[in-house]
């Protein structure tokens, strides 16, 4: 999808069409006529009756033309420079997000296996209100809809950079007693769909959006038992419905730098803040008319 987006942009930005007249494609027996000339050192060579054009051999996707004149070239259709407007305005964003949310690890049951022995444990959190802090990388892909609306999908992946120490209490024992569990790094995975309303403010845009999906927080533990070490995890999947405010600044017609702030309306002390770069298939997101 990222490559598709990049191709849309590159196709639009490449600026010059490919060239043809006589042409050949890779794998065929065709033979191009003409000489290798750059566009800045044009040599005009004509052949046939009206079959004339500029000899500018150029390869596009394995196809090579030797003229850029419409009707004689074959590799590139007329109007390649307009291709970006044939699709709806698309955008791709990537950035980093900081997430703060209450830990749900308290009173969770887990299991850990050492060889043929399986043990159960239960997590106990500190008495104060425990919170997790996560740093994630996010990817967003969306389309601009009529009337300044936009919609899309986003995915995020990251790790817990701060988490309260959970006490894992073993609730079963084996031949050599009980394993010793220590909490290790945690992971965050999320997937959401979003819809928003964006307004152009000249140098950039402001937007409000709603996003809904799920967030999976994976808490990992290292278990040591009779010189054997293994890991165990507790995965907690929670629904997320976020209200967000976003602000973008145009760094160029197709590139934005933005910041976002949001809060999960389904949970207290659940908020996020992020920075991102956005690539747009149309100049200024197609917002300027």
């Amino acid at each position: 999808m990222k490559w598709l987006f990049a191709l849309v942009l590159v196709d639009q930005l490449a600026g010059r069409p490919a060239l043809a007249g006589g042409h050949h494609c890779s794998g065929s027996n065709g033979e191009a006529t003409g000489t290798s000339e750059s566009r800045r050192h044009v040599e005009y060579v004509y052949f046939g009756d009206h079959h004339g054009g500029t000899i500018v051999p150029e390869t596009v996707g394995g196809c090579e033309d030797n003229t850029d004149v419409v009707g004689y070239r074959h590799c590139t259709k007329y109007g390649a420079w307009a291709s970006s407007l044939r699709l709806p305005p698309l955008f791709f964003e990537t950035g980093g997000t900081m997430r703060h949310f209450r830990s749900q690890l308290g009173d969770r049951d887990g299991t850990v296996s050492h060889g043929v022995e399986t043990f159960t444990y239960r997590t106990v959190m500190p008495t104060e209100s425990p919170s997790d802090l996560a740093m994630t990388s996010s990817l967003r892909f969306g389309a601009v809809l009529p009337h300044h609306f936009y919609s899309g999908l986003e995915a995020e992946l990251g790790g817990l950079v701060s988490q309260p120490n959970a006490n894992a209490q073993m609730t079963s024992t084996g031949s050599f007693g009980a394993p010793e569990l220590t909490q290790s790094h945690g992971m965050v995975v999320g997937g959401l769909a979003f819809v928003g309303l964006r307004g152009d403010i000249g140098l950039g845009s402001l937007a409000v959006e709603g996003a809904g999906g799920v967030r999976d927080v994976i808490y990992n533990f290292t278990s040591t038992y009779h010189e054997c070490e293994t890991s165990s995890s507790i995965s907690i999947v929670r629904p997320v419905v976020e209200a967000r405010a976003r602000a973008d600044v145009w760094l160029g017609p197709w590139l934005t730098l933005g910041a976002t702030l949001g809060a999960n309306v389904l949970a207290k002390s659940d908020w996020m803040a992020g920075l991102y770069l956005g690539l747009h298939s149309r100049a200024y997101g197609g917002s300027r008319y």
Binding site: R16, G52, D68, V69, G71, G79, P253
Partner: peptide, 26 residues
Amino acid sequence: AYDPGAEIRELRIDGRATGEEAIAYP
């Protein structure tokens, strides 16, 4: 214009974009 494929038509070019075409008039 020489346009055997009936390709040449009115199109819109995106803001701040460029393009070029060469057309024969036999």
